[in-house]
């Protein structure tokens, strides 16, 4: 059976700098896979390569067995590869309801409709409500997104990705910058992701990583240092030295 997402020998160079070095990775269906690594390990570059914001210097990306390396970002989304952003990338002037509404319309292929009102189709509203409810955003669905508390915006980041109907979801540090009081909401949101969605989580927060992941890959200097179960990774001496060691020393 094809992997949900397979990366083969992916590299990206910026001038003389190698940001991603021959990375290969296999994401099974329904996987809960975490990608960890110290700052500057090339995690965000990898997400940008996968989502099509950057073009790789070498290597291939296969989504469900199909090569998508040459596809534009929006075409990858159409095939079910969706990402979130480490720094919120939302539509500040819209509301959570209209934000999710337009993403759902897009997924149902209604985004070129220019004569009917947004939400005039009942199924769109049904889905919006379901998604907003799952991420606890119903209460603020008519607020301006730019005015929402940061934690709510982080949740909307994920909700918006879910609204695109992902088969593979790339979560770029969902808990980044979230204050302690709002962290539980994010953890609950991540835990509530549909089981059929394969998830690649990039995260600094070890607590979240070990609670969430069934499998972990460690990225150091653009290369995969090792992959394994959380227990294997936690026990690995090289990882402790390179990654956890640095964490401890801050």
């Amino acid at each position: 059976m094809n992997a949900a997402l397979e990366i083969v020998g992916l590299s990206r160079r910026f001038g003389g700098l190698v940001a991603t070095n021959d990375v290969s990775l296999r994401l099974e269906r329904g996987a809960r896979h975490a990608l960890i690594g110290p700052n500057g390990a090339g995690k965000t570059t990898l997400i940008n390569l996968l989502s099509g914001v950057l073009a790789p210097s070498a290597g291939r990306i296969l989504l469900d067995g199909t090569d998508i390396t040459a596809l534009r970002p929006d075409a990858r989304v159409h095939r079910g590869l969706v990402r979130t952003f480490q720094i919120n990338q939302l539509f500040a002037d819209l509301t959570p309801l209209t934000t999710v509404g337009l993403a759902v319309s897009r997924r149902l292929g209604l985004d070129r409709q220019f004569w009917r009102r947004l939400g005039s189709k009942g199924e769109i509203v049904d889905e919006c409500v379901a998604i907003l409810e799952r991420f606890d955003l119903l209460g603020v669905m008519n607020e301006r997104v730019g005015a929402l508390p940061y934690g709510r915006q982080r949740l909307l980041e994920i909700a918006l990705a879910i609204a695109c109907g992902p088969r593979v979801l790339l979560l770029d540090e969902p808990a980044a910058g979230v204050p302690e009081g709002e962290r539980e909401g994010i953890l609950a949101g991540v835990a509530a992701l549909p089981v059929e969605v394969s998830v690649l989580l990039i995260e600094h927060d070890m607590d979240l990583v070990f609670r969430f992941a069934q499998r972990i890959s460690v990225l150091v200097n653009g290369s995969v240092l090792m992959q394994g179960s959380p227990a294997e990774v936690a026990a690995d001496a090289r990882v402790r030295e390179v990654y956890l060691g640095e964490e401890v020393h801050g």
Binding site: V77, L102, R106
Partner: peptide, 26 residues
């Protein structure tokens, strides 16, 4: 009519954040 249609909202989305607009498949 057009600015209140799904198309109209996607245009607002593109103005608001073109990077994210592409990332939701527009």
């Amino acid at each position: 009519r057009i600015v209140h249609s799904p198309f109209g909202w996607t245009v607002r989305a593109v103005r608001g954040n073109a990077l994210r607009a592409a990332a939701i498949g527009l």
